[in-house]
Design a protein around this nucleic acid. Sequence first.
DNA 1: TGAAAACTGGGTACAGCGTACCCTGTTTCC
DNA 2: GGAAACAGGGTACGCTGTACCCAGTTTTCA
Lengths: 232, 232
Amino acid sequence: MRPEQPARGPRPSFSRARLTEAAIRIADAEGLDALSMRRVAAEIGSGTMSLYRYVSSKDDLIDLMSDAVAPEFFPPSTDVTGDWRADVRALAVCNRQAMLRHPWLTKSPATRQSAGPNRVRLMEDSLGLVDGLGLSMDAMLNVMGAIAAYVNGFVSAELAEAEARRRTGMDLMQWMASQASFIESLLRTGDYPLFSRMVTEAGRELTDPDERFAFGLDRLLDGIAATLPPAP
Amino acid sequence: MRPEQPARGPRPSFSRARLTEAAIRIADAEGLDALSMRRVAAEIGSGTMSLYRYVSSKDDLIDLMSDAVAPEFFPPSTDVTGDWRADVRALAVCNRQAMLRHPWLTKSPATRQSAGPNRVRLMEDSLGLVDGLGLSMDAMLNVMGAIAAYVNGFVSAELAEAEARRRTGMDLMQWMASQASFIESLLRTGDYPLFSRMVTEAGRELTDPDERFAFGLDRLLDGIAATLPPAP
DNA sequence: TGAAAACTGGGTACAGCGTACCCTGTTTCC
DNA sequence: GGAAACAGGGTACGCTGTACCCAGTTTTCA
């Protein structure tokens, strides 16, 4: 499976890229659980084991998938203004949207971060947004790492809720209603005043995921901005 | 599998709690991939299918596991001072440590958040840390949600790196050295100045995970504190 | 005091998974 | 033309979750 272009022998019928594309299509539409080698083979019309001429393992395939979608994580150049805060914010928003488009990314087996060239490019461009602010490289990595951690954590929770909704066919409120007797028995004990308030009061404001995402992101940016060395 | 105490028939040989405990032990030590129903059955010395008298599915078991470790997520009462900022910070630190103790939590299949009684208790107590600050319930949920997102995202990245290190047997620097020829070919293009700086400069300061965690956490707390209504 | 009901543990079996291994056919080089 | 290097793909193995069934045990009721 090794070389991209074999020196001898028949021309390969497929390509790593085509295989990766098919795998992404399946994972996007049906989730990572539905992604199997047999399924990918069926999708591109090859034998199952033939895939191993192109990738060395399923994990390798997932690495390729991750790298393939990496370009979606950087906002279009028209959105990059040169103002670090606006740009980092746009990056975070763009990252969230890309992760929502490819929910399997949050559950993909942990591999080394900067696996492929696209990810290196993404890291380069992302770091570029906070370059020239008088930060050391470690400080820059800390800033971008904190942003990435928040975005990742938020989207993971968002996707977990979406998946639960899909699986049970109920949204949070419907699910709570179905658990009413259990919840009410808790409330009657009087030991859960805040949980009780949550059940009755939550959802009056800021229920839009976009706004909830923005809240934490802007607080984090506020905090980062306050520690930045003064602009020259 | 339904009732905890059967009305008729023989006394159950095990208990849901014992089963859950065994499963947690396996998952802590060998990861979620090593957790199979057959493995759990072998651990407690029962037949595989007997487990289904106690849990309705493997996902159900994982739900029980999550709920069982929930108490570890709240700091001991001696650490709760009444100062919201110190307390939320202690909660975040405690959450991180608990997640590091149980790495499978970050990959456990997405189920409804507040599944069991321990998780409800945790939510109640966590919300209690930001009660009385003049925040609406939705604002409180936003604050705690942002903190949880950051902690979750940070620990996920931390565990992913740890797992990659364990799998390849190399830490980040060793791995980079092994990829040296690829990396150097990138650097020679001159298109990756910041990535290049990262390779040469990173790690001079703040490489301690605890400090990196604290950096983002404190920035987030800074930002949140700034939006809080003035204390009475 | 049986008989029936409700439960227990556990074995068998099935569909699906990743992938090691092997065979056959095609292309290219010497 | 022979050999080497490759292509595609079939078979098979050990693993997974779990549906289903059966035999044994305890309790309840006539």
